[in-house]
Design a protein around this nucleic acid. Structure first.
Length: 588
RNA sequence: GCGUCUGUAGCUCAGUGGAUAGAGCAAUGGCCUCCGGAGCCGUGUGCGUAGGUUCGAUUCCUAUCAGACGCACCA
């Protein structure tokens, strides 16, 4: 379906043309004065100068030309030259009924679906997820789902950190702890065991221990570097250990991401990109892009229009090793080969912006992707504690994501038990759903690029712009619909009549905006706009609910209309939280 | 030093080249024979500062102040 604003603009364009003005002045926007009108057009003021007329004169003419339009119930010109508009109730009802009949609720699937690679998550093998991984996962998942809802083919890749020094550290630490393992027997020639020589909890303990040791013990560090080198050059026993680390760690990561309701299509890692590196380096040198500087191999990234100089991108260290940028470039080569994406979106901490600028530019200069390839970097800010400083545990350490989630679930659980008499088991399950919603919504309702304050009490509150409040509204609608069905009613969609009250009209106006909000949010990579929208929608619904008796309505057509309207509201809310990666429980 | 981002109500956050800048929390007053009161309706305070562009700037530009962050061999 066409967006409501687009339909209005068509009418306005015709009106401007009829009056002898250019059609590009005919732009409709949401009103910023809801007391006066619902939509407005400010084009008359812009046109005034070009046509050397008073704005109000133009506005009056256009308003007059709109008199035949069926979509506006009000069109009036007011000083100094605004054209104030209201949507006709009949038109709105018709639009909403049509929306309700469509799977995507009035959203037009994109005409040319693109293959879009979304790089998010960024987990490291052998290290537990901590709060720093939360934002990338939550925001990325939402971007991916938004794109998918619009009809794009979205490919989410977790892009694991599975190839660095941490692997050598673990191997050396393992050698010290369990020197008898066959992996450390140079003369061993048999098959390696299929069973890993450690559990996930051991692994999670081994890495920090090794990391700490390497900072104090130079020789240990050297051995770890050497082990890393041998691993990367295909030394079989270490490859076998590495396989074990990967298997054990991946199983745990998958479990943790699943708990977050975050799903990746690809579980690729830096290791997968390694085979492409030698050819990449050769190519960069051959094309004359890479040159030696202070022993390292670098690529300049200057381009026309730069107001200042950007540092070159290092693609090979002076010791010959590859690094972050090399690996990311190689990953792009791999993705081009496997998927030919039309677009790339990276979701990472905003501190990495320079790095991605460098990588994108080198990728284009080297022809790994075309010059026009859209490569977006969505950088997010830090999650801070109430003191405004980066979020830490009480003793100053990094908080594990599992602990954070458990903590939230516990608090939500207590909340539910306080107010409702449900079984403990149901309360546990509900708390999980509501807790996750609180966590995700708390994150997504802020502009991604800004730092934000993580305030658990605020996030789990059932009041205000919070996940639980949105869920509460959905549950409330479900409850009414259930009761309606219990009383023998048959809920049908598409029966919406013209709104008869202010609050009903208000609810309709919000619902009309759904497709526009969804498109805009994706275009701007701004999940918080969806949050803002469903918060307003929830408020409008609760207002409508408050002054409308639905179940005791005697006019059966009117009642059917109310039921259709709240079903549509529920569907819009459910679809919206769906793209945010949030689900609603049946009761709460 | 150079650069990027941010600065809106007591707090946490939205928002816009246009008419009176919005929510929530907190404070405070009201509304239950009624579909979930986890609700609804009220009350008060603000665009860091100074210039510029514009018919009109909180929004765009410049300068300035404050905070966060980034600036070659970490990821």
């Amino acid at each position: 379906m066409k967006k409501i604003l687009a339909i209005m603009e068509e009418e306005l364009k015709q009106a401007f043309l009829d009056c002898g003005y250019e059609e590009n002045y005919a732009k409709a926007v949401l009103s910023n004065r809801p007391d006066l009108c619902e939509y407005q057009c400010n084009g008359a003021m812009a046109a005034a100068k070009a046509y050397k007329k008073k704005p109000i004169e133009i506005a009056s003419q256009v308003a007059e030309a709109l008199s035949g339009s069926k979509i506006f119930s009000m069109k009036e010109a007011v000083m100094p030259g605004f054209i104030n508009l209201k949507v006709s109730e009949e038109f709105a009802a018709e639009y909403l009924n049509q929306m309700a009949g469509e799977e995507k609720l009035g959203l037009e699937p994109v005409k040319k679906p693109e293959t879009i690679m979304v790089d998010y998550g960024g987990a490291n093998v052998a290290k537990p997820l901590h709060v720093g991984h939360l934002r990338s996962a939550v925001i990325g998942e939402s971007i991916k789902r938004m794109g998918r809802f619009l009809g794009h083919q979205m490919i989410g890749d977790v892009h694991l950190g599975d190839w660095g020094l941490q692997m050598g550290l673990i191997i050396e630490e393992l050698r010290e702890r369990k020197p008898d393992l066959v992996y450390f027997d140079e003369s061993y020639t048999g098959e390696y065991p299929t069973e890993a020589p450690f559990t996930i909890s051991e692994l999670e303990e081994i890495y920090p221990a090794a990391s700490a040791k390497s900072k104090e013990d130079e020789r240990f560090k050297e051995r770890a570097q050497n082990a890393t080198f041998r691993l990367q050059n295909g030394y079989k026993p270490y490859r076998a250990v590495w396989q074990h680390i990967m298997a054990v760690s991946l199983a745990d990561l998958k479990k943790n991401y699943a708990n977050l309701n975050v799903e990746f299509d690809l579980w690729k890692g830096e290791s997968d990109a390694q085979p492409y590196i030698p050819a990449l380096i050769d190519d960069l040198v051959e094309k004359g892009l890479a040159y030696e500087s202070q022993g390292a191999l670098v690529v300049d990234i200057a381009q026309e229009g730069d107001s200042k100089e950007l540092p070159p991108c290092i693609v090979r260290k002076s010791d010959g090793a590859a690094l972050y940028a090399t690996s990311d470039l190689a990953t792009i080569i791999e993705r081009e080969k496997d998927f030919h994406p039309d677009r790339y979106i990276y979701i990472a901490d905003k501190r990495q912006e320079l790095h991605f600028t460098q990588v994108f530019r080198v990728a284009k200069k080297a022809g790994i992707v075309s010059q026009e390839m859209p490569m977006a970097f969505l950088g997010f800010g830090t999650m801070n504690g109430k003191d405004g400083k980066p979020f830490k545990t009480r003793d100053g350490g990094v908080m594990r994501l599992e602990h954070l989630i458990a903590n939230i679930n516990e608090q939500v659980f207590n909340r539910i038990m306080e107010n409702r008499t449900v079984s403990e088991e149901e309360a546990r399950n509900t708390a999980k759903i509501v807790g996750l919603a609180a966590l995700k919504y708390g994150d997504l309702s802020n502009q991604a690029a800004k730092d934000y304050v993580f305030d658990i009490d605020r996030f789990i509150s059932f009041e205000g712009n919070t996940g639980p409040y949105i869920l509460y509204t959905i549950v409330r609608i479900k409850s009414i619909l259930n009761k309606f069905a219990e009383n023998g009613g048959k809920a049908e969609s598409g029966k919406i009549l013209s709104a008869a009250s202010d609050s009903e009209k208000g609810l309709c106006l919000l619902l009309l905006r759904f497709n526009d909000v969804m498109e805009t949010s994706f275009a701007e990579l701004a999940p918080h706009k969806i949050c803002q929208y469903i918060y307003e929608l929830s408020n409008e619904f609760n207002r409508f609910y408050h002054d409308t008796k639905i179940l005791s309505e005697e006019d059966s057509d009117r009642q059917a209309s109310y039921i259709s309207l709240i079903m549509l509201t529920k569907d819009v809310l459910t679809a919206s939280i769906g793209v945010l990666g949030i689900e609603a429980p049946e009761r709460m």
